[in-house]
Amino acid sequence: METTIQKNGNQVVALFKGRLDTAAAVTTAEEVKPLMEAANSEIILDCSQLEYISSSGLRIFLSIRKEAAAHGSKVIVRNISADIRQVFMMTGFISLFEIQ
């Protein structure tokens, strides 16, 4: 699992690559910390190369959303696969995130 963060003006993009499972979650949680500090930004969680998301991964996404809201930022989940969209739906989180 690899997470790359790029800042582009008012936008912060996190690109997730691989499987965000329980084992990868600890490292990923560390890697996304800069997102939590981004104030008044648009945070894009680019999932185009994300193959799988576990509950731990969902918790990371929820933390990002919570911190972003506290800092006046907005989170957009982008390019999720059909499988991951289904995970968002089955758990009832589909109405919480802006998914593009």
């Binding site: 576990s54 918790r59 758990t91 009832g92 919480l96």
Partner: peptide, 21 residues
């Protein structure tokens, strides 16, 4: 429906919207 969808997964977090959804 939820049991059918979640029963075969190890997803142990749900939102409070899942019931109404």
């Amino acid at each position: 429906l939820a049991r059918h969808q979640l029963g075969n997964t190890d997803l142990d977090i749900i939102s409070s919207a899942v019931g109404l959804q």
